[in-house]
């Protein structure tokens, strides 16, 4: 093998840029709850103020750092691609994962829009096969693209005979 080893190439498409903002908001909301609670308690309970406000500050810094850095990184790591034959998705960094589901084996195509995703005009598309371990998820696609994709996938899968097992 003079040419080198086979490798999986990254899927073609990145997510929508808005996904970064979406993830950021998620991180901020996630951190805001405990920070707010701790802060409120700290304001009310004078004797334990240090022990309440300290962690609150720590959490706030942590949350802000995560919100600033991680989404950008996730954006770089998440990629997807749909060809005529298959759906191909890559996720993760510390435990990178590639999933490939052939069109002929796709059973359902779900489009989900959470409340937060709605705000950012994003959708998630989940493609399931007959395998309990074979679901392929694409999060953070723009609305139009997601529905287009779902429609395209549904059309292709309906054209395939058999029960896809």
């Amino acid at each position: 093998m003079s040419q080198g080893e086979w490798r999986l190439r990254p899927p073609r498409n990145t997510l929508d840029r808005r996904a970064i903002a979406w993830w950021r908001t998620q991180w901020l909301l996630w951190a805001a709850g405990p920070v707010f609670t701790l802060g409120l308690l700290g304001a009310l309970i004078a004797p334990a103020r240090f022990w309440l406000l300290g962690p609150a500050a720590l959490l706030a810094v942590l949350g802000l750092t995560c919100a600033a850095l991680i989404p950008r990184w996730w954006y770089a790591v998440h990629r997807w691609e749909v060809t005529d034959e298959a759906v191909y998705v890559r996720t993760g960094f510390f435990r990178q994962e590639w999933r490939i589901a052939p069109m002929s084996r796709i059973q359902t195509v779900d489009t989900v829009r959470g409340p937060l995703e709605q705000m950012f005009k994003l959708s998630s598309v989940t493609v399931t096969t007959a395998s309990a371990k074979g679901a392929v998820r694409m999060k953070g696609l723009p609305h139009e693209q997601a529905s287009q994709l779902a429609e395209q996938l549904t059309r292709i899968t309906q054209a395939t005979p058999g029960d896809a097992t």
Binding site: L8, F94, R95, E97, W98, I100, A101, P102, S131, G134
Partner: peptide, 14 residues
């Protein structure tokens, strides 16, 4: 009967 692949690689595996 194979209806897809899942490939995983942790940092250590990489």
């Amino acid at each position: 009967g194979v209806i897809g692949w899942r490939v995983r690689q942790s940092v250590f595996q990489r």
